[in-house]
Computed example of a mutant assay.
Amino acid sequence: MSYRLRSAALTNYVEVARSVGVDPYHQLSSAGISQSVLLDSDIMIPADAVARLLEASARAAGIDDFGLRMAETRQLSNLGPLGFVMREQPTLRKALESMAHYLRLQNEALVIHIEESGGLAVIREDIIGGIPGSMRQATDLVLGVLYRMLSVVLGAAWRPRTICFTHDAPANLATHGRVFGAPVAFRQDFDGIVCLATDLDAAVPTYDPVMALQVRRYLDAMLVQSNTTMPDKVRRLVVALLPSGACSVDRIAQHLGVDRRTVSRQLASYGDSYLSIVDEVRIELVTRYVDSGDRPLSEVATLVGFSSLSAFSRWFNGRFGCSVSTWRRDKEQ
């Protein structure tokens, strides 16, 4: 499935590309993106094309922090209407919940999910769709922007516990130090921000209930116009819930506020089922995880929702016609 995002995602791309000696317009053309999208931040463009653009630009520049450099100067206004959602909520928790609810108006390929345990909260991001192999630059851009937005909402004095990345550490951490000013951990099980659970209930100073109502009405109207299908809704929830090991059609139905029969019936009308979507998402994620490095297969199994490596291995063999090790070796040749 093809996902889209607002061309605002390319804010300051040209400036960053030039600063590291890369021809931005050549890279845009190679990624199949028209230069005209730079003139209007509300044009919807393919998310996978943007991911390819960022990875190719990083390779051309010989750096591994291209996406984070783009995030470094982002402002809340770059999120368009979604920026108002962040500012016009009473607490950070409500701001994040509203952001997650309306996020597809900004980026159809991004899922934001909040998990709490032991006094800590994880604000996790997952990119669906995309391209086989590395999504490092897109991930860095998303987490960098998310951190900057939270800092704007809560004030510059706010600091999370840890910024977590699934990919390896870069050769130079200078940009991470400038952007985050907080501990950064690599080769983690998720991409996201860890903070105190109490931070989620921190008051948002800019909250205005009258303005919040107006913003909500406006965005609700935009959601109706966007016509998200049941398969889209289920797919986003599957991506968010798979790593927890608690992904099921009943859980999906609970999140959607309907019963499982309604979910199954509406999926069937599109020629889909809960299990077919789970399989599709797993194939997409496994391709990315196995392609992007030497992550232990036990971790990959957990990240795609299997309780054991043996169960994952049987599933992989059934879908790809070979063992994981054989598939990975063939890819490396």
Rank of each mutant, 00 (worst) to 15 (best):
V239M: 13
Q254C: 01
A9C: 08
A31F: 00
R187E: 14
D48P: 05
I128Y: 01
I277Q: 10
G129W: 12
D40W: 04
D220F: 00
G318I: 02
P24L: 09
R260L: 01
D272H: 12
L96Y: 09
G192V: 11
S98Y: 00
D330S: 11
L143N: 09
G155A: 00
R329K: 11
A240I: 03
K94G: 07
S307C: 11
L267E: 01
S34K: 14
C195H: 02
A240D: 00
F84M: 14
Q254R: 10
R328G: 00
Q225N: 11
T11E: 12
V85A: 05
A138R: 15
L103E: 06
S325V: 04
D250M: 10
S307T: 12
R161S: 07
S325K: 07
L82R: 01
L242G: 07
R178Q: 14
F190N: 09
L196C: 06
L200R: 09
Y218W: 04
S244M: 08
I114M: 15
V278P: 03
P90E: 07
A138T: 14
V215N: 04
R251I: 07
Q333E: 12
A311C: 10
L68C: 04
E97D: 15
T91V: 04
M99W: 02
R217V: 13
L213M: 13
D191I: 02
Q106T: 11
L241N: 10
G181R: 06
I277L: 15
Y102S: 01
M149Q: 10
P24C: 08
D232K: 08
V194I: 14
G155Y: 00
T326N: 12
N227W: 08
F180N: 01
V142Q: 05
L82G: 02
G257S: 06
D199T: 13
M86T: 02
R4E: 11
Q137R: 01
A61V: 03
M70T: 01
V224P: 02
V152N: 11
R288G: 05
G62D: 08
